[in-house]
Design a binder for these strands. Structure first.
Lengths: 116, 116
DNA sequence: TTAGTATATACCTGTCAAGACATATAACAT
DNA sequence: ATGTTATATGTCTTGACAGGTATATACTAA
């Protein structure tokens, strides 16, 4: 479990990060929100902590977890050269943005334009 | 191997994507660049293809692989809310950027400049 | 045809991680 | 002290997956 990439590869961990982006939470709150067992949540939090994605504060008998930006920034930086790449491929970019618009409207799925 | 996140969790696959961002390559070129066995490369390319990260073109007896932007864009979109988050935590942002500067220069540590 | 090159797939094996369950630790209440 | 709540950790099992070797497929060259 060395890299930040492996850490966010796990869906439950992404869900935890998604929860924490809006506000900090205790273990129990995360457990109830994600309907995971308590040990499962604690283990994921351990992984996230070790990788620097979150940090905990002790508050009475609770541990309140909050997000730390650095590892996510690292992921963002890895993506940077690819952003530069796809800015040169405007056609693909536009197809993608169109697909996004479709989703936003919750309209039925549309076949993608075949290329070449 | 459902999600794009799992696909890029694998270091060799990230290396392949890193190669393809500069230019398209054949399987053999990738194999030699990464010093992996040919079957290993083909398997990673299969995963990348199935997930939409790359596509192949047949050219004589070679298959030339090139990048496709969409799945990487999806990763980028997942990061969007976190970018918004850390833009509100400027101190951490600055510590991170300073660390990056250190790395770039590989020079001895320097006092941090206060900003704004 | 045959041989040679380039790539893909089958099969096997070792490793690693996620989840379940049980148990330990810690803080608080009485 | 005992009990109760909140969280962490240990153990075990199961399944996934990465890499290796061997083999299959596809195309080229003669």
């Amino acid at each position: 479990m060395t890299s930040s990439f492996e850490v966010v590869a796990e869906p439950s961990r992404r869900a935890i990060l998604g929860l924490l982006v809006s506000s900090e939470r205790s273990v129990g709150e995360i457990e109830r929100a994600l309907r995971l067992s308590q040990p499962a949540v604690s283990k994921h939090l351990r992984v996230l902590r070790d990788a620097g994605f979150v940090e905990a504060r002790v508050e009475a008998q609770h541990r309140v977890y909050r997000l730390r930006p650095e590892p996510l920034m690292e992921l963002d930086q890895w993506l940077a050269p690819f952003r530069a790449y796809w800015s040169k491929h405007v056609d693909a970019l536009e197809r993608h943005l169109d697909a996004m618009k479709q989703k936003a409207k919750t309209s039925p799925s549309k076949p993608r334009k075949k290329k070449r």
